[in-house]
Design a protein around this nucleic acid. Sequence first.
DNA 1: CAGCATCTTGCATACGTAGTCAACCCGTGG
DNA 2: CCACGGGTTGACTACGTATGCAAGATGCTG
Lengths: 337, 337
Amino acid sequence: MPKGKVTSGDVAKLARVSQSAVSRAFNEGASVSEAMRTRVHKAARALGYRPNAIARAMISGRSRLIAVLAAYLDNQFYPIVLEQLSRALQDKGFHVLLFMTDTGHQDEVVQQMMEYQVEGIVMASATLSSTLARECAQTGIPVVLLNRYVPSSPASSVTSDNAEGGRLVAKLLVDTGHKRIAFIAGHEDSSTNKDRESGFLEGLQIAGQQLWARAVGNYTFDGAANAARQIFANKERPDSIFVANDHMAFAVMDVIRNELGLRIPEDISIAGFDNVPESSWGAYQLTTVEQPSGPMVEATVAILMDQIVRKAVTSRNVILPARLVVRQTVKLKTAME
Amino acid sequence: MPKGKVTSGDVAKLARVSQSAVSRAFNEGASVSEAMRTRVHKAARALGYRPNAIARAMISGRSRLIAVLAAYLDNQFYPIVLEQLSRALQDKGFHVLLFMTDTGHQDEVVQQMMEYQVEGIVMASATLSSTLARECAQTGIPVVLLNRYVPSSPASSVTSDNAEGGRLVAKLLVDTGHKRIAFIAGHEDSSTNKDRESGFLEGLQIAGQQLWARAVGNYTFDGAANAARQIFANKERPDSIFVANDHMAFAVMDVIRNELGLRIPEDISIAGFDNVPESSWGAYQLTTVEQPSGPMVEATVAILMDQIVRKAVTSRNVILPARLVVRQTVKLKTAME
DNA sequence: CAGCATCTTGCATACGTAGTCAACCCGTGG
DNA sequence: CCACGGGTTGACTACGTATGCAAGATGCTG
């Protein structure tokens, strides 16, 4: 029966070998005979021994810990990424130390991450401060900004092609005959919003159109609902709205259908961004731009492993293609008015 | 400029004091003069020193790590709980080590948790194996089963009153005149499903009714959609369905409205369980039973702190009240047929 | 002013493991 | 039979911090 803590020393005693031998028996590259290894493992099994990862991290300087920082998990995009990320890192023998923080205690949180000697940091939220990103990066620890980009930062980043996504939506709305096109922004300081909006405006401009109305939802559900109400407070209504992410788009759709009594897409078209699972749910069937979470996570892990295992020093900025997912919230053909 | 690793020894040298003094200056309860503390902190700031949590965990035997185990994050209930849990633990000076696992590699994952010397384990998923829960508990590390209950286990548990919730739904459906009442189960081995179902059946029985139909959705979106199709494959339709959680209820509603062309609640009533954020979204307005995630997390943290900080040994089983949240998916008055 | 208690401080050690180094075994070829 | 080399093994030390212990400093009481 395993009582309290059992150490490599205990195993060594039982197996009548040295502590070093036990250590080597549990390390991949070490020089041990097969006989010794099985002998040690047998004793270890008898005692219920497992190497102490803390002590191991201490001596080797390798904690096998990756810090993941997120601001919120409301937007389904993040839980999904978090789940995939955690699984992928587990497969590589790493583990996720999770930190939640809204703007405010961010500095403190970064300090805490460093105290745990994490080998890498993933910042997975569109609304984290740029100074924080920079602060992290200059610690020498590999930092990957997931779904966020800070131009002058030495940190790596993985995003989808937000600008292209914006352009695709603009083209879709224009091509389907929309004339009064509105935009509801997310968090205005975030790179995702900037890129989506600039791509969208560019797309409109190419088609010779201008933005009809604009409001800010700050990537929150309630904020988006208010933004929608604000846009519809005017006498003349838009005929379409591009909402900066799906999470907000659902709020906008709710307001349009339940408060204003309008139909989607007959009275007004809506497009979102992310392609979270809810977008495909029957009640929304949201036309949106897909952010490929799988490849984004893969790229994140690849960068991390490159820098940690292969000690690569150059940071990378990966931009994955964004794809339009057409469902039923954009009216495909509209009569000229 | 902070170069590489700076240790308490470096700080000690700069401040011309002993390493012990530095250690004490960074520990709350230690015996240090105020002069010494400020002197050390000044030197520490100059060097960018922060104590090494790994070394600290090593010597003190206190890692301040809590393992959180989840099977999936699709169901919005879990991300929300995870976010709250992480925040609450951070406030207490603890940190979350996140593990994701489906049934299969569970044993391996538990070993990994132990290797990191976690001080507590939270198992946050309805579909984790009971043997795993037991295995965890007998390690001597405090284990809290969140939203799950294993009768003969020494682990603590925090749940809502699932049986009462089931009864409330039964009463609601009966009181509003429903006669052909169906149930779509989650994962049949899970305690949440068992309790919700037994409470529901009990409620029906009290009212002198019997279950009209039953299918299994395994707590998955697609599984629930299929379960719904199966139930409606019969010539005669139910007039109401209690779905074992909200996540599945959305799938059921989609099938009913989009595939079968029926109206909710005019043609059929739906009730769920959890009260996840999406339940209040305009497109669903789901009548459901609230699981109070806030209090559930609070109770979890309280139990953990009791056992870790105050070294309490007795496990606790907390059951929090479940509350009916009436929205618009249950037809309140139905004409007798 | 002596004597004692309280508070501070430094020294030395311990935590559990990995890795260096030297010693050792065994087999091979000269 | 000896020299040599590859392969194993054990003793020892280091990682960075916390803490028991003893010594020193300070304050307080009689």
